[in-house]
């Protein structure tokens, strides 16, 4: 139980001191995970909407696959990306292994199915309601997608935040493709894993507390910025 009070003390200490090592790790975490989520969203939103609106053979299979991919184990994703980016792998010449870019790619793969699947569900539900209206006023496919994405923005924002939560919290993929290299690819979760393995449980837990605080801050920021729009989405 001592560990818990110790952890809070460590967390407070790190925060008050604005520990530069901590700051570096936090900033890298944020940049990697935010980039991964934005990148994933740019492609997953239209794809999810497309699958929701366009009947094609095998669509059920695609939907099941998208939903199932939400539970991809990060370690497996990390391993696959590792093998792809490894010097002897098919993308080895890019030299991206053990770089933040590799971590962004891995997290992007993890987050993509979450955003795509939740987007599909959101757009599908909304389309049930809007379909006759949209056809009545003669909207084309792109206009339909734009309308449905915009009107689903509150739920899509939640989907994106869910994706961000998965990205910022996962350790399995980034530790494999990033290598947890000091000053280069060390992020919050890999630091926590490292401190745990050093037996410095207070520090590990303290960092965990800071990770949660950062997640709260990001969510608050997004909800506040999106707040004006949110009111009209009831």
């Amino acid at each position: 139980m001592n560990e818990f009070s110790n952890a809070f003390r460590t967390a407070a200490h790190l925060l008050v001191e604005m520990d530069p090592g901590l700051l570096e790790v936090v900033l890298l975490s944020l940049r990697v995970s935010l980039s991964a989520v934005i990148l994933a969203a740019v492609f997953a939103l239209p794809l999810g909407a497309f699958v929701a609106l366009t009947p094609f053979p095998g669509r059920r299979g695609v939907v099941i696959l998208m939903n199932a991919m939400m539970s991809l184990p990060p370690v497996v994703v990390g391993l696959v990306i590792y093998l792809l980016l490894s010097r002897t792998g098919p993308l080895g010449t890019t030299g991206l292994l053990f770089t933040p870019t590799a971590m962004i790619i891995a997290q992007c793969v993890l987050v993509f199915p979450i955003i795509a699947a939740l987007t599909r569900q959101t757009v599908f539900d909304l389309h049930e309601e809007y379909d006759e209206y949209l056809r009545s006023v003669g909207a084309g496919t792109r206009q339909k997608i734009a309308t449905l994405l915009w009107d689903g923005r509150a739920r899509l924002l939640t989907a994106i935040l869910a994706g961000f939560g998965r990205a910022i919290a996962e350790v399995g993929a980034v530790i494999i493709v990033g290598g947890n290299i000091l000053h280069s690819t060390r992020v919050m979760t890999t630091t926590i894993a490292l401190e745990t393995s050093k037996g410095d449980l207070g520090m590990a837990l303290g960092l965990g507390i800071i990770l949660v605080l950062i997640a709260v801050a990001v969510n608050t920021a997004v909800v506040t910025i999106g707040g004006g729009a949110n009111q009209r989405t009831v």
Binding site: E129, Y130, E132, Y133, T147, W150, D151, A154, R232, V234
Partner: peptide, 10 residues
């Protein structure tokens, strides 16, 4: 329509 279809906007 019978149930007004309104977009989630002003």
């Amino acid at each position: 329509f019978q149930r007004p279809v309104l977009l989630r906007r002003s």
